[in-house]
Simulated scan of single mutants.
Amino acid sequence: MSSFLEPYSHLVDFSQRSLLISTFAIAFNPTFWNIVARREYRTRFITRAFGSAQAGCYALAVTIFSLGLLRDFLYERALRAQPSHPLLEGDLPTYAGYVLLAFGNLLVISSTWQLGITGTFLGDYFGILMDDIVTGFPFNITNAPMYYGSTMSFLGSALVYGKPAGIFLTGVVLVVYLVAIQYENPFTAGIYAKRGQQTAAISSAKKAKKVEGKKEL
């Protein structure tokens, strides 16, 4: 493995422990919330622990948000220990980095505004479902604005710091999020499909009851 990475050692210092820790934190966060949220969906263990689905969802939201802050801290710490590159130290890469940071944060903040806390932090796994699909900005651009916005922010920071290691870690972020999307989207769609079936069944039962009532009359 070391011989494979050796040609890139002048760009990324793979011997730095902070780089490994940052990579682990990036991969850990979505893995953690997917495992915990699915267990909550199947067992309601968080809901039972906090007394209600709403309280449990907010507790998970605080946990996920805190882990995100820790991940960002570890990312910045890893970048500071990495070598810079002249091609990334000019004004153009720096300005591009700030643009990416601004637009990435816009996607994250606007999607949170649209979904609310429970919609953003896996409320559907707690049974807190949204009434309708959100189609306004930024969901009219992408179906995963938080993930892509976060990825853009990682890349923006890499350019602002002028660190090739940041581009490498951004690649890790993108891969991790793409994998998470493949697991999350079908599962979430299944949750809403199940609600649709239940709603349709209740509606059919009510109609049948009305018909029976008319027949009796």
Results as ranks from 00 to 15, higher is better:
residue 129 L to R: 10
residue 193 A to W: 00
residue 36 V to Y: 02
residue 142 T to V: 10
residue 48 R to L: 07
residue 171 G to A: 04
residue 157 S to E: 10
residue 69 L to E: 11
residue 111 S to Q: 04
residue 1 M to N: 11
residue 140 N to Y: 05
residue 127 G to Q: 04
residue 57 C to H: 02
residue 41 Y to G: 03
residue 125 Y to Q: 02
residue 121 F to A: 07
residue 79 L to P: 04
residue 63 T to Q: 07
residue 187 F to I: 01
residue 6 E to T: 14
residue 212 E to L: 14
residue 157 S to F: 04
residue 78 A to F: 09
residue 197 Q to M: 10
residue 69 L to M: 08
residue 34 N to K: 05
residue 69 L to H: 08
residue 55 A to D: 11
residue 99 V to E: 14
residue 170 T to E: 00
residue 180 A to M: 04
residue 54 Q to A: 12
residue 170 T to Y: 10
residue 132 D to E: 15
residue 103 F to G: 14
residue 183 Y to D: 05
residue 30 P to G: 06
residue 23 T to N: 10
residue 187 F to T: 06
residue 16 Q to P: 09
residue 112 T to Q: 15
residue 181 I to L: 06
residue 10 H to G: 12
residue 135 T to Y: 09
residue 14 F to V: 12
residue 169 L to E: 05
residue 73 F to Y: 14
residue 38 R to G: 01
residue 116 G to C: 00
residue 215 K to F: 09
residue 48 R to F: 05
residue 15 S to F: 10
residue 209 K to H: 03
residue 166 G to H: 08
residue 38 R to N: 10
residue 213 G to K: 08
residue 179 V to E: 08
residue 168 F to C: 09
residue 199 T to N: 13
residue 159 L to V: 02
residue 64 I to H: 03
residue 131 D to W: 05
residue 68 G to W: 00
residue 110 S to G: 07
residue 78 A to Q: 04
residue 129 L to T: 03
residue 73 F to H: 09
residue 214 K to V: 09
residue 151 T to N: 03
residue 127 G to A: 03
residue 32 F to H: 14
residue 44 R to N: 10
residue 210 K to W: 08
residue 86 P to C: 01
residue 17 R to Q: 15
residue 63 T to W: 05
residue 7 P to W: 09
residue 106 L to M: 13
residue 24 F to S: 14
residue 138 P to W: 10
residue 133 I to A: 15
